[in-house]
Simulated assay, not measured.
Amino acid sequence: MSLYGSRVSVSDLNEIDDNNLVKLAANGDQQAFCELMNRHMDRVYNIAFRMTRSSSDADEVVQQTFIALLKKLKQFKGESQFTTWLTRVVINYCLNFIKKRNRQETPIGAGTPDEDSWEEAGEPEDLLPWQQNPEQKLQRKQLHELLTKALDRLDDKYRPVILLRDVEGHSTAETAESLGITESNVKIRLMRGRTLLRAELGQLMAENELSV
């Protein structure tokens, strides 16, 4: 089956991988683009919702992301997985959206030193992951609510790293590629983000009179 010699049927699209679908969509095949949307809509929405913490804002980010993809598809060179490239696009739109959204509270971690100024940062694995403390001592529902609030207050510099590494389960290399930063910076932001998140979680627990 030729990808470019004739129009591809809808049933055939299901058998085509993402990279070849991108090539078809970039050349004006609307059905190929719709197939890409169908495959990745849930993933894009989940990332957008976790970043913006608002269903309406997430819907807007999803719309902006897929509109942008129509213009950006020819920029995709196939040097990485399409999902990695798409993740970077949606996170960038999330960050831009959040910056435009008026905030009443200063995000946790705003104004902290850049990664390059931190020496002897160590490995983030040297710290207990934020899920482990105090997750085991709180009911699941209570912990989920507090973690959601704490993550929402985290600065945009750290939230994407926490989201990709600890929530989505991406590797350090995958996270670095998705965010366009070095693996070293991923490790440092992850360590700093977990530390800030634990501190905020402790404060929220105190405010809600919860003990550990």
Rank of each mutant, 00 (worst) to 15 (best):
N102T: 07
E105L: 08
N96Y: 11
Y93K: 15
I108H: 00
N96L: 04
K100R: 13
I98V: 10
P107Y: 04
G111L: 10
P107F: 07
G111I: 03
T84F: 08
W85F: 14
I98E: 11
R88H: 15
V89H: 05
T83Q: 11
G109S: 06
E105T: 05
Q81W: 11
F97Q: 04
N102H: 05
T112P: 00
T112R: 13
F97G: 01
L86S: 07
F97R: 15
N92S: 13
R88T: 11
R103D: 07
R101M: 08
A110E: 11
I98Y: 04
R101C: 06
V90F: 10
L86W: 11
L95C: 05
V90Q: 07
K100L: 06
T87Q: 04
T83A: 07
I108P: 00
Y93F: 13
T106P: 01
R103T: 09
I91T: 06
W85S: 02
R88K: 15
T87W: 11
N92P: 04
I108F: 07
A110F: 10
W85A: 00
Y93S: 00
I108E: 08
F82M: 08
R103W: 01
T106S: 01
Y93W: 02
Q104W: 10
P107W: 08
C94A: 03
N92L: 05
P107K: 03
K99N: 07
F82T: 08
Q81F: 14
V89L: 15
T87N: 12
Y93G: 00
G109H: 03
Q81N: 11
I98M: 15
Y93E: 13
R101E: 09
N92H: 08
A110K: 11
N96K: 14
I91V: 15
R88L: 07
K99Y: 12
Q81D: 14
W85P: 09
W85V: 03
K99M: 04
L95S: 06
E105R: 05
V90C: 08
V90M: 04
R88Q: 14
Q104D: 10
E105C: 01
F82L: 09
I91H: 04
R101V: 05
V89A: 03
R101S: 05
K99V: 12
T87I: 09
T106K: 11
R88A: 14
E105I: 09
V89D: 00
Y93H: 15
L95N: 02
T83C: 06
I108R: 11
P107Q: 02
F82A: 07
G109E: 02
K100F: 04
R101G: 03
L86R: 07
I98D: 03
L95I: 14
F97C: 00
P107C: 01
I108D: 10
Q104G: 10
V90G: 02
S80R: 15
Q104P: 00
I91Y: 08
T106I: 15
L95K: 13
S80H: 13
V89Y: 05
G111C: 08
V89I: 15
A110D: 12
F97S: 08
I91F: 12
K100E: 14
L86T: 09
A110M: 07
F97M: 09
Q104E: 12
G109K: 04
F97I: 00
L95P: 01
